[in-house]
């Protein structure tokens, strides 16, 4: 290990010429010894904090593990937090019947309420009421005919006689919209108690049938004779909008025959 031998580790300094031991330029020669471990006892605070962390972690594990079952997916109840402003809970999906009637109300407010009023009372002596009206709560076929074709000439409604002109709406409303309006006026203002059981809701296919069979320009009350009956088609539940069992379907089928003959 002669200092003049340039391959000696003594010369492992920069530019390989300076002796690290004599010149004291190498970081390696002045550094402290490699570290070892001491034997101080663990401080009490370490054990206390660790104990606290273990309690929190174990509580977390116990509260959220879902019984360690592969079929349990609920991490924490209330994951779907309420919207921030107002703090309300997100609205549940409304039943289809409610949506159907709400749509009907929209159409009614836009078109019908101008004359018949928002509360369905009409205007005394000028526009007949829809609330408590036998034309509304009776068979759906005559109601559909009135809305499709309009009506003129004298008409008696709820014991009062009226004589004004209602324009036809067959071009303004499609089958679905008209069915929604009819459902709405039959189910509102106390009319729901007067309609025949399960016939409050009107479906688009019922209206389609009426539209196809009753095109009567300048229709008068006399045209409605014999049509105080329900349109053919499956009756539906007012909440779920699902067709109601076999009985109703049969009733629809028997109604269909005379309608077909028209």
């Amino acid at each position: 290990m002669s200092p003049s031998d340039s391959n000696s580790p003594v010369h492992s300094d920069y530019d390989e010429k300076v002796n690290i031991l004599t010149e004291h330029v190498s970081a390696a020669s002045r550094e402290k010894p490699d570290p070892t471990e001491g034997n101080e006892p663990p401080p009490l605070i370490a054990i206390m904090i660790a104990g606290f962390a273990l309690i929190v972690g174990a509580g977390y594990l116990g509260g959220t593990n879902g019984g360690l079952s592969n079929d349990s997916f609920t991490f924490v109840e209330g994951y779907d937090v309420p919207p921030v402003p107002g703090g309300g809970v997100i609205e549940e999906q409304k039943p289809p019947g409610e949506i159907w009637l709400a749509e009907g109300k929209k159409q009614y407010s836009a078109i019908c309420a101008a004359c018949h009023q928002g509360n369905g009372q009409g205007q005394t002596g000028v526009y007949p009421p829809l609330a408590n009206s036998e034309w509304v709560t009776g068979g759906t076929e005559q109601l559909a005919m009135i809305i499709l074709n309009g009506i003129q000439g004298p008409i008696t409604v709820d014991g009062q006689s009226y004589n004004s002109l209602m324009t036809p709406w067959k071009d303004a409303l499609n089958d679905k919209q008209m069915a929604q309006v009819m459902s709405y006026i039959r189910m509102s203002w106390g009319n729901a108690e007067q309609v025949a059981e399960n016939s409050g809701m009107v479906t688009a296919e019922m209206v389609a049938h009426a539209r196809a069979t009753h095109d009567i320009p300048g229709m008068k009350v006399s045209h409605l004779e014999g049509f105080d009956k329900d349109l053919p088609g499956a009756k539906v539940d007012p909440i779920t909008m699902e067709p109601i069992g076999g009985g109703a379907a049969e009733g629809g089928a028997t109604d269909e025959e005379p309608a077909g003959e028209e």
Binding site: A46, I49, A50, G57, N65, Y79
Partner: peptide, 28 residues
């Protein structure tokens, strides 16, 4: 809160909390 069996995120979350123990030991 995702579509995994609840024990999976639960065990991982608990491990993350338990890691505070070595953190405290190392820091001290």
């Amino acid at each position: 809160g995702g579509p995994l069996p609840a024990w999976m995120p639960s065990v991982s979350g608990a491990a993350m909390i338990f890691l505070v123990v070595p953190m405290v030991f190392i820091g001290l």
